Simulated assay, not measured.
Amino acid sequence: MCALSWTGLLFMASVSLAGAEPGHRTGDQALIAAAERNDVEAVRQLLKEGASVRARDPQGRTALLAATYRNHVEIAKLLILTGSDVNTQDAMQNSPLLLAGASGYLDILRMTLAADPDFTIYNRYGGTALIPACERGHVEVVKELLKTKIDVNHVNRLGWTALLEAIILGDGGPTHQTIVGLLVAAGADLNLGDGDGVTPLRHARQKGYRVIADILLSAGARE
Protein backbone atom coordinates (compact mmCIF):
# COMPACT_ATOMS: atom_id res chain seq x y z
CA MET A 1 0.00 0.00 0.00
CA CYS A 2 1.37 3.41 -0.93
CA ALA A 3 2.37 5.95 1.70
CA LEU A 4 -0.14 8.54 2.81
CA SER A 5 -0.18 11.71 0.72
CA TRP A 6 0.37 15.14 2.24
CA THR A 7 -3.41 15.55 2.07
CA GLY A 8 -3.84 12.40 4.13
CA LEU A 9 -1.26 13.53 6.66
CA LEU A 10 -2.92 16.93 7.01
CA PHE A 11 -6.26 15.16 7.44
CA MET A 12 -4.90 13.03 10.27
CA ALA A 13 -3.42 16.09 11.96
CA SER A 14 -6.68 17.99 11.71
CA VAL A 15 -8.92 15.22 13.01
CA SER A 16 -6.71 14.74 16.04
CA LEU A 17 -7.69 18.26 17.05
CA ALA A 18 -11.33 18.11 15.97
CA GLY A 19 -14.56 16.61 17.17
CA ALA A 20 -14.13 17.06 20.90
CA GLU A 21 -15.61 19.90 22.88
CA PRO A 22 -13.59 21.37 25.78
CA GLY A 23 -14.02 19.23 28.87
CA HIS A 24 -14.92 16.10 26.93
CA ARG A 25 -11.69 15.41 25.06
CA THR A 26 -10.53 12.53 27.28
CA GLY A 27 -14.01 11.05 27.28
CA ASP A 28 -14.25 11.33 23.51
CA GLN A 29 -11.07 9.33 22.95
CA ALA A 30 -12.12 6.87 25.64
CA LEU A 31 -15.38 6.34 23.75
CA ILE A 32 -13.51 5.40 20.58
CA ALA A 33 -11.24 3.05 22.52
CA ALA A 34 -14.20 1.41 24.27
CA ALA A 35 -15.98 0.93 20.96
CA GLU A 36 -12.90 -0.70 19.49
CA ARG A 37 -12.49 -3.17 22.38
CA ASN A 38 -16.24 -3.98 22.39
CA ASP A 39 -16.91 -2.64 25.89
CA VAL A 40 -20.64 -1.99 25.68
CA GLU A 41 -21.08 -0.79 29.26
CA ALA A 42 -18.19 1.66 28.96
CA VAL A 43 -19.67 3.03 25.74
CA ARG A 44 -23.06 3.53 27.42
CA GLN A 45 -21.48 5.27 30.40
CA LEU A 46 -19.27 7.53 28.30
CA LEU A 47 -22.24 8.57 26.18
CA LYS A 48 -24.17 9.43 29.36
CA GLU A 49 -21.22 11.53 30.48
CA GLY A 50 -21.32 13.54 27.28
CA ALA A 51 -18.67 11.94 25.09
CA SER A 52 -19.16 12.98 21.47
CA VAL A 53 -20.01 10.44 18.77
CA ARG A 54 -18.48 12.94 16.31
CA ALA A 55 -15.02 12.79 17.85
CA ARG A 56 -12.20 11.23 15.84
CA ASP A 57 -8.92 9.55 16.68
CA PRO A 58 -5.61 10.26 14.86
CA GLN A 59 -6.68 7.86 12.08
CA GLY A 60 -9.87 9.84 11.56
CA ARG A 61 -12.06 7.11 13.02
CA THR A 62 -15.20 7.88 14.97
CA ALA A 63 -16.37 5.44 17.62
CA LEU A 64 -18.75 3.98 15.03
CA LEU A 65 -15.93 3.40 12.57
CA ALA A 66 -13.79 1.82 15.29
CA ALA A 67 -16.65 -0.55 16.10
CA THR A 68 -17.26 -1.30 12.42
CA TYR A 69 -13.63 -2.25 11.80
CA ARG A 70 -14.03 -4.96 14.45
CA ASN A 71 -17.63 -5.88 13.50
CA HIS A 72 -18.91 -5.02 16.97
CA VAL A 73 -22.60 -5.14 16.12
CA GLU A 74 -24.18 -4.17 19.45
CA ILE A 75 -21.98 -1.14 19.87
CA ALA A 76 -22.51 -0.06 16.27
CA LYS A 77 -26.27 -0.25 16.82
CA LEU A 78 -26.03 1.81 20.00
CA LEU A 79 -23.89 4.46 18.34
CA ILE A 80 -26.13 4.76 15.29
CA LEU A 81 -29.18 5.09 17.52
CA THR A 82 -27.33 7.81 19.42
CA GLY A 83 -26.80 9.79 16.24
CA SER A 84 -23.47 8.65 14.82
CA ASP A 85 -22.98 9.72 11.21
CA VAL A 86 -22.83 6.70 8.88
CA ASN A 87 -21.28 8.88 6.16
CA THR A 88 -18.17 10.00 8.08
CA GLN A 89 -14.93 8.83 6.44
CA ASP A 90 -11.56 8.23 8.07
CA ALA A 91 -8.06 8.82 6.69
CA MET A 92 -8.40 5.66 4.57
CA GLN A 93 -11.66 7.05 3.15
CA ASN A 94 -13.67 4.27 4.77
CA SER A 95 -17.15 5.09 6.04
CA PRO A 96 -19.23 2.65 8.10
CA LEU A 97 -21.25 1.75 4.96
CA LEU A 98 -18.21 1.34 2.71
CA LEU A 99 -16.30 -0.65 5.32
CA ALA A 100 -19.20 -2.94 6.23
CA GLY A 101 -19.93 -3.62 2.56
CA ALA A 102 -16.33 -4.43 1.66
CA SER A 103 -15.86 -6.57 4.79
CA GLY A 104 -19.11 -8.51 4.49
CA TYR A 105 -20.43 -7.29 7.84
CA LEU A 106 -24.09 -7.82 7.04
CA ASP A 107 -25.65 -6.71 10.34
CA ILE A 108 -23.80 -3.41 10.45
CA LEU A 109 -24.41 -2.89 6.74
CA ARG A 110 -28.17 -3.19 7.32
CA MET A 111 -27.97 -0.65 10.15
CA THR A 112 -26.14 1.84 7.95
CA LEU A 113 -28.68 1.35 5.17
CA ALA A 114 -31.53 2.01 7.62
CA ALA A 115 -29.83 5.32 8.47
CA ASP A 116 -30.25 6.59 4.88
CA PRO A 117 -26.59 6.80 3.83
CA ASP A 118 -25.13 8.88 1.03
CA PHE A 119 -24.32 6.52 -1.85
CA THR A 120 -22.20 9.16 -3.59
CA ILE A 121 -19.49 8.88 -0.93
CA TYR A 122 -16.77 6.66 -2.39
CA ASN A 123 -13.83 4.64 -1.09
CA ARG A 124 -10.16 5.34 -1.84
CA TYR A 125 -10.52 3.60 -5.20
CA GLY A 126 -13.45 5.82 -6.13
CA GLY A 127 -15.89 2.95 -5.69
CA THR A 128 -19.15 2.19 -3.93
CA ALA A 129 -19.70 -0.45 -1.26
CA LEU A 130 -21.15 -2.71 -3.96
CA ILE A 131 -17.95 -3.07 -5.99
CA PRO A 132 -15.69 -4.70 -3.35
CA ALA A 133 -18.64 -6.70 -2.01
CA CYS A 134 -19.00 -8.26 -5.46
CA GLU A 135 -15.27 -8.89 -5.79
CA ARG A 136 -15.01 -10.53 -2.37
CA GLY A 137 -18.06 -12.74 -2.79
CA HIS A 138 -20.29 -11.25 -0.09
CA VAL A 139 -23.53 -12.51 -1.62
CA GLU A 140 -25.92 -11.41 1.14
CA VAL A 141 -24.35 -7.96 1.27
CA VAL A 142 -24.73 -7.67 -2.50
CA LYS A 143 -28.40 -8.61 -2.20
CA GLU A 144 -28.99 -5.92 0.42
CA LEU A 145 -27.19 -3.24 -1.55
CA LEU A 146 -29.09 -4.05 -4.72
CA LYS A 147 -32.35 -3.30 -2.88
CA THR A 148 -31.22 0.33 -2.56
CA LYS A 149 -30.69 3.19 -5.00
CA ILE A 150 -26.97 2.45 -5.26
CA ASP A 151 -25.59 2.86 -8.78
CA VAL A 152 -25.02 -0.67 -10.11
CA ASN A 153 -23.02 0.75 -13.04
CA HIS A 154 -20.74 3.08 -11.10
CA VAL A 155 -17.19 3.03 -12.46
CA ASN A 156 -14.28 3.27 -10.01
CA ARG A 157 -10.82 4.74 -10.61
CA LEU A 158 -9.61 1.43 -12.02
CA GLY A 159 -12.24 1.72 -14.73
CA TRP A 160 -14.28 -1.15 -13.31
CA THR A 161 -17.95 -1.60 -12.47
CA ALA A 162 -19.20 -4.09 -9.89
CA LEU A 163 -19.80 -6.58 -12.72
CA LEU A 164 -16.30 -6.19 -14.11
CA GLU A 165 -14.72 -6.49 -10.67
CA ALA A 166 -16.72 -9.64 -9.88
CA ILE A 167 -15.29 -11.20 -13.03
CA ILE A 168 -11.76 -9.78 -13.11
CA LEU A 169 -10.99 -10.30 -9.41
CA GLY A 170 -13.42 -13.14 -8.66
CA ASP A 171 -12.61 -16.83 -8.98
CA GLY A 172 -15.40 -17.72 -11.40
CA GLY A 173 -16.91 -20.19 -8.93
CA PRO A 174 -20.47 -20.61 -7.66
CA THR A 175 -20.36 -17.55 -5.40
CA HIS A 176 -19.26 -15.19 -8.14
CA GLN A 177 -21.62 -16.86 -10.59
CA THR A 178 -24.46 -16.01 -8.20
CA ILE A 179 -23.25 -12.42 -7.86
CA VAL A 180 -23.03 -11.98 -11.64
CA GLY A 181 -26.60 -13.27 -11.90
CA LEU A 182 -27.75 -10.79 -9.24
CA LEU A 183 -26.07 -7.90 -11.05
CA VAL A 184 -27.60 -8.93 -14.36
CA ALA A 185 -31.05 -9.08 -12.75
CA ALA A 186 -30.46 -5.64 -11.19
CA GLY A 187 -29.84 -4.04 -14.58
CA ALA A 188 -26.05 -3.98 -14.78
CA ASP A 189 -24.76 -2.78 -18.15
CA LEU A 190 -23.50 -6.01 -19.69
CA ASN A 191 -21.50 -4.29 -22.41
CA LEU A 192 -19.80 -1.54 -20.41
CA GLY A 193 -16.11 -2.31 -20.83
CA ASP A 194 -13.11 -1.42 -18.72
CA GLY A 195 -10.72 1.43 -19.44
CA ASP A 196 -9.37 -0.49 -22.43
CA GLY A 197 -12.84 -1.29 -23.73
CA VAL A 198 -12.70 -4.97 -22.73
CA THR A 199 -16.25 -6.11 -21.98
CA PRO A 200 -17.39 -8.35 -19.12
CA LEU A 201 -18.07 -11.17 -21.57
CA ARG A 202 -14.59 -11.00 -23.05
CA HIS A 203 -13.03 -10.97 -19.58
CA ALA A 204 -15.10 -14.03 -18.62
CA ARG A 205 -14.03 -15.90 -21.73
CA GLN A 206 -10.37 -14.96 -21.33
CA LYS A 207 -10.45 -16.33 -17.78
CA GLY A 208 -12.24 -19.49 -18.81
CA TYR A 209 -15.31 -18.71 -16.69
CA ARG A 210 -17.75 -20.60 -18.89
CA VAL A 211 -20.76 -20.44 -16.57
CA ILE A 212 -20.41 -16.67 -16.12
CA ALA A 213 -19.97 -16.25 -19.88
CA ASP A 214 -23.18 -18.24 -20.42
CA ILE A 215 -25.06 -16.06 -17.90
CA LEU A 216 -23.94 -12.95 -19.74
CA LEU A 217 -24.73 -14.37 -23.19
CA SER A 218 -28.20 -15.46 -22.09
CA ALA A 219 -28.86 -11.91 -20.91
CA GLY A 220 -27.79 -10.43 -24.26
CA ALA A 221 -24.16 -9.50 -23.62
CA ARG A 222 -21.86 -8.80 -26.54
CA GLU A 223 -18.13 -9.29 -26.78
Rank of each mutant, 00 (worst) to 15 (best):
residue 1 M to R: 15
residue 1 M to I: 15
residue 5 S to G: 13
residue 5 S to M: 15
residue 6 W to P: 09
residue 7 T to D: 12
residue 8 G to I: 04
residue 10 L to P: 01
residue 15 V to P: 01
residue 16 S to W: 13
residue 17 L to S: 11
residue 20 A to S: 15
residue 21 E to H: 04
residue 22 P to W: 05
residue 26 T to Y: 05
residue 28 D to C: 12
residue 28 D to F: 12
residue 29 Q to C: 01
residue 31 L to R: 06
residue 32 I to S: 06
residue 32 I to Q: 04
residue 33 A to S: 13
residue 34 A to M: 07
residue 36 E to M: 10
residue 37 R to Q: 13
residue 37 R to F: 04
residue 38 N to L: 04
residue 42 A to N: 10
residue 42 A to W: 10
residue 43 V to Y: 03
residue 43 V to N: 02
residue 44 R to S: 11
residue 44 R to A: 04
residue 46 L to V: 00
residue 46 L to H: 08
residue 48 K to R: 15
residue 48 K to M: 02
residue 49 E to F: 04
residue 52 S to V: 05
residue 52 S to L: 06
residue 57 D to I: 01
residue 60 G to I: 10
residue 66 A to C: 02
residue 67 A to Y: 11
residue 68 T to K: 00
residue 69 Y to F: 15
residue 71 N to W: 14
residue 72 H to W: 07
residue 72 H to F: 00
residue 74 E to F: 03
residue 75 I to E: 00
residue 77 K to R: 14
residue 80 I to T: 02
residue 82 T to P: 01
residue 82 T to I: 00
residue 84 S to R: 12
residue 86 V to W: 03
residue 88 T to Y: 11
residue 90 D to W: 02
residue 90 D to M: 03
residue 91 A to V: 09
residue 91 A to R: 10
residue 92 M to E: 15
residue 93 Q to N: 07
residue 93 Q to L: 14
residue 94 N to T: 01
residue 96 P to S: 09
residue 100 A to R: 11
residue 100 A to K: 09
residue 102 A to Q: 14
residue 104 G to D: 08
residue 105 Y to T: 14
residue 107 D to V: 13
residue 107 D to H: 14
residue 108 I to L: 05
residue 108 I to S: 03
residue 111 M to R: 01
residue 112 T to K: 02
residue 113 L to V: 11
residue 113 L to A: 03
residue 113 L to N: 02
residue 114 A to Q: 10
residue 115 A to C: 02
residue 116 D to P: 01
residue 117 P to T: 07
residue 118 D to L: 00
residue 119 F to L: 01
residue 122 Y to I: 02
residue 125 Y to P: 00
residue 128 T to L: 07
residue 130 L to V: 03
residue 131 I to T: 11
residue 133 A to E: 07
residue 134 C to M: 02
residue 135 E to R: 15
residue 136 R to F: 13
residue 136 R to L: 11
residue 137 G to L: 09
residue 137 G to S: 08
residue 137 G to D: 12
residue 138 H to K: 10
residue 142 V to M: 08
residue 146 L to Y: 06
residue 150 I to C: 03
residue 151 D to M: 04
residue 151 D to K: 12
residue 152 V to A: 01
residue 153 N to W: 12
residue 154 H to M: 10
residue 154 H to P: 08
residue 157 R to A: 00
residue 158 L to F: 03
residue 158 L to Y: 10
residue 158 L to G: 12
residue 160 W to L: 12
residue 161 T to K: 08
residue 161 T to D: 08
residue 162 A to S: 14
residue 163 L to Q: 06
residue 163 L to T: 14
residue 167 I to M: 04
residue 168 I to V: 13
residue 171 D to W: 12
residue 171 D to R: 13
residue 174 P to D: 14
residue 175 T to V: 12
residue 176 H to T: 01
residue 178 T to L: 03
residue 179 I to M: 00
residue 182 L to G: 03
residue 184 V to Y: 04
residue 186 A to D: 08
residue 187 G to D: 10
residue 189 D to G: 00
residue 189 D to F: 00
residue 189 D to N: 08
residue 190 L to Q: 07
residue 191 N to M: 01
residue 195 G to M: 07
residue 200 P to G: 05
residue 201 L to C: 06
residue 202 R to P: 00
residue 206 Q to C: 09
residue 209 Y to P: 01
residue 210 R to Q: 15
residue 213 A to T: 12
residue 217 L to F: 06
residue 217 L to Q: 09
residue 218 S to I: 06
residue 221 A to F: 08
residue 221 A to N: 08
residue 222 R to Y: 04
residue 222 R to D: 04
residue 223 E to G: 11
residue 223 E to S: 14
